[in-house]
């Protein structure tokens, strides 16, 4: 799929999902085969305000929020078990830099998959939604970091063979995003615009 990054306008895309790739919902939690689930998995929360560099694991009734500027918000979701991982990614590459795995696109995606796997989630069933990566004002600093973040996450998703369902990225405005595990919907709020569900 070709993409055009427009400095001033956000890119919004919803990618159609083939019907055969959406199996029926399963309500019971299946622990990872051959491993103790309690030993491997961290806590899944019902509410999370995901800060810079953070990854939150959301339970099936969970709601996660984040406010994004140049950072990107990535949500990986299992529509069957309804667990999700939500990351607030700051930089495209860890590149021998210090920082937690959630801070960098090249470590966050794999870390999210690993955390979800501990809940018995098959990575092949995961879907992704991507938001953020704005360039909010002119500065001498890392001006195009938003675009770099978007590109880096897309590259990692492709490498992990995770299907991107929808995106709301770029532009010059911040976003408040809210993901609801019960429905799999991601609400995107941008000042001056009608909130959109992707």
């Amino acid at each position: 799929m070709s993409r055009t990054f427009n400095d001033s306008l956000p890119s919004v895309a919803i990618h159609p999902v083939p019907k055969h790739s959406m199996p029926a919902a399963i309500n019971s939690l299946k622990p990872a085969a051959g491993r103790s689930a309690s030993a491997m998995r961290e806590e899944a929360v019902t509410t999370a305000s995901v800060g810079m560099g953070q990854i939150a694991i959301l339970s099936p009734e969970g709601v996660g929020t984040a406010v994004l500027g140049s950072c990107v918000g990535l949500t990986l979701y299992d529509p069957n078990l309804r667990f999700a991982a939500m990351a607030h990614i700051v930089l495209p590459s860890s590149d021998n830099r210090t920082g937690g795995v959630g801070k960098f696109a090249d470590t966050a995606v794999e870390a999210m998959v690993t955390k979800l796997r501990s809940f018995g989630i098959d990575p092949a069933k995961l879907t992704a939604k991507l938001t953020g990566g704005a360039s909010m004002f002119e500065t001498k600093g890392p001006f195009q970091i938003g675009k770099q973040n978007i590109d880096a996450v897309l590259e990692r998703l492709a490498a992990c063979r995770i299907r991107l369902l929808s995106e709301h990225v770029g532009g010059t405005q911040g976003r408040r995003v809210t993901f609801q595990c019960r429905t799999g919907q991601l609400l995107v709020e941008v000042i001056g615009s009608t909130p959109i569900v992707i």
Partner: peptide, 10 residues
């Protein structure tokens, strides 16, 4: 805009 979003870039 959202203050935190602007602060992120700063």
């Amino acid at each position: 805009d959202y203050v935190v979003g602007i602060l992120e870039q700063a």
